[in-house]
Amino acid sequence: MGLFNRRTRSYKKMDDQELIVLAKDDKEAFGELYERYMRKIYNYIFYRVGNAQDAEDLTSRVFYRAMGHIDNYVDRGVPFQAWLYRIAHNLVANFHRDQSRRKIIPLDDYVAHSLRSDAPDRQAEASEDEERLMAAIHRLPPERQQLILLKFIQQKSNAEIGEIMNRTEGAIKSLYHRTLLALRDELAIQELERQPERNQDTLSSARNKQVRG
């Protein structure tokens, strides 16, 4: 018992690099990395796919893949956490590609509905505004969704997001600006669509502007 506790405690004090070296032969070391990052990866995936079941499946795949490839992981300026996010991002992209081949329910309806009903710790119903915002976020291109989630859920700095998305800090600031503009336009269009007969002209000009942008 004493030995096990000493080992467990020492894993907690180690940094990621030490754990990665050990994790190549030692599953307990990988377990510590799992403890550190599982919830972050789960949250990222949850908001990208919109329901707990798929988030669980994809989170499992991320960690199985990370464990299977940890021998090949070499820190070339990409922290372990960024490496996990990249695996997650690729798996989510594959997931959406597969879903689009057999999609039955429109994604926005699905996401809004699922977020309301599946989030384990969100007891209250999401408000109409939240649903509108989530639908608008899911209409953004994948890398912009990723940026928004890393900012607001993971509260990462621009430099950290840059490491994950393989861009400079300046490029992240610029992308973030464009993302917020696109989100604001999307919300404005949604607002016009709620009263289509009154706003038909404004709506078509806004959509044209969005297509050109």
Binding site: Y34, N43, T59, I148
Partner: peptide, 29 residues
């Protein structure tokens, strides 16, 4: 208003404890 709405909508969710423990047990063999 947009930033505050994003901040209040995008909240951290907790995976179920069952899932968390089961996946760890599977990974640890």
């Amino acid at each position: 208003s947009l930033l505050m709405e994003l901040n209040s909508t995008l909240v951290v969710v907790q995976p179920s404890a069952r899932f968390e423990n089961q996946l760890k047990a599977e990974l640890m063999g």
